[in-house]
Design a binder for these strands. Sequence first.
DNA 1: TCAGAAACGATCAAAAACGATCAAAACCAA
DNA 2: TTGGTTTTGATCGTTTTTGATCGTTTCTGA
Lengths: 259, 259
Amino acid sequence: MILEVRADLAPERRERMRILIRKAGVARVEDLKSDLKVSVATVRRDLEALEEEGRIRRVHGGAVSMESRLEEEVFDDKANLALKEKRLIAEEALNFIGTGDSIYLDGGSTVLEIARLLAGRTDLTVVTNSLRAAAELSESGPRVILIGGELRRLSQTMVGPLTQAILGQVRLDKAFMGTMGLCIDDGLTTTDPNEAFTKSLVQEHARQVVLLADARKAGKISFARVSDLESVDILISDKKFPAKTARTLRKRGLKVRLA
Amino acid sequence: MILEVRADLAPERRERMRILIRKAGVARVEDLKSDLKVSVATVRRDLEALEEEGRIRRVHGGAVSMESRLEEEVFDDKANLALKEKRLIAEEALNFIGTGDSIYLDGGSTVLEIARLLAGRTDLTVVTNSLRAAAELSESGPRVILIGGELRRLSQTMVGPLTQAILGQVRLDKAFMGTMGLCIDDGLTTTDPNEAFTKSLVQEHARQVVLLADARKAGKISFARVSDLESVDILISDKKFPAKTARTLRKRGLKVRLA
DNA sequence: TCAGAAACGATCAAAAACGATCAAAACCAA
DNA sequence: TTGGTTTTGATCGTTTTTGATCGTTTCTGA
């Protein structure tokens, strides 16, 4: 008689752990220890494995689920440590905006920085799926058009099939896009398929696609594929962007600007 | 020294802090200290981190939020006086919402009160053109679909021809509408023609139209015509609503509820 | 303008969490 | 069973986080 088959138990335990963390959004090591009836050492090892898989993110004292709201914020926070870079990228992006342009602003913190810089530009028309960008521009400035669609809470953006209804009816001179992952082989990727759908739709409609991505996005691959890199006309990143990747992109015809 | 058992993970606590600051706009260190049950030193450290991320700005004594929020306009006294009535009207309106309904929420402060009451209703689908309603529901609750269109700054709603793109693609069991003027002869009127256009469009699409209008709206006529009263199925108002007008409306087939 | 009060930042010590290491236990194939 | 491998849990030194203290800065109102 086999009392315990540990080879099956370990992955099962990790799965339970993952579920626990996702349900609560966060979990402390001590809680997981008592819930799963194992030692803290094992909990740490499992968390390490789950982090390796990208399912969670470890923090001091426990872990945060990748699928939770908090994680998106934490992830954002992490990315926002590059706030200065984002500002520089956004300022560089401004150079590509002409008088009277009709531009699209994607969700994401880097693109949001552009919105902050457009306060006085009453000559522009801004099309966006980002509630945050809309809020930023709601006081004054450009004409604002929201594309509508289902609200994705995590990112505060409108995504999904419904977005194509309005996108089909507007002209977009330039689209300023954010991304979660940028990879030579896998192109642009993001977390949510519906978001990916809308992003790719926008890129098809826009005359020119400007991708804003700080250096840490380079080489990252997220879950849902948006498009390949050929859809992008201009990439704006910061000085830390891998030179080799930049060269490859330039060879492929992209204009690369490192702010 | 005895440290208390930490209830929160650091990122969790910072997230709560961020929300607190955003909700109130500003927060004092002492308040955050007692709200989060930590020392002032920790509060300061967290604020420092949040400032680094660009989410807040520290000021002497506390911090102010950098995250733009859709501000509720500072209502004049007249509107504030009607707040109680608006609440009652909104609560009455809840009775008309069934399980799993797909409902439309119009702009306007009265309708916004409904949004505030829908926090837990994950069974519903809310379609709206109001950024404020969307913001109210963006944290949790029903599925939210924004209809898109041009942003009208004053009302923070999406209006105009573009709105019909998505409205044509969704089912609306009930539409909860606000209005500026309600008049037996001139029907429903509002200030902006684009807004009127979208309102009438919604009313055509909805199976049932519920009009929310406090008594002050009775007899008022605004600039742009929305529709005549026959488009409305149910009127919800308050006790001060003119009895004579109510009688007339009932004769015309409207259901009238005075909350 | 100046003095008291409040808030601040730097620094330090305590406590909790962490990672590395190692031995014991469980597992697996012969 | 036996020998080798993997997994687990305990120990221990190190790191991180937190809260208190104290001198300094900033705010406020007389």
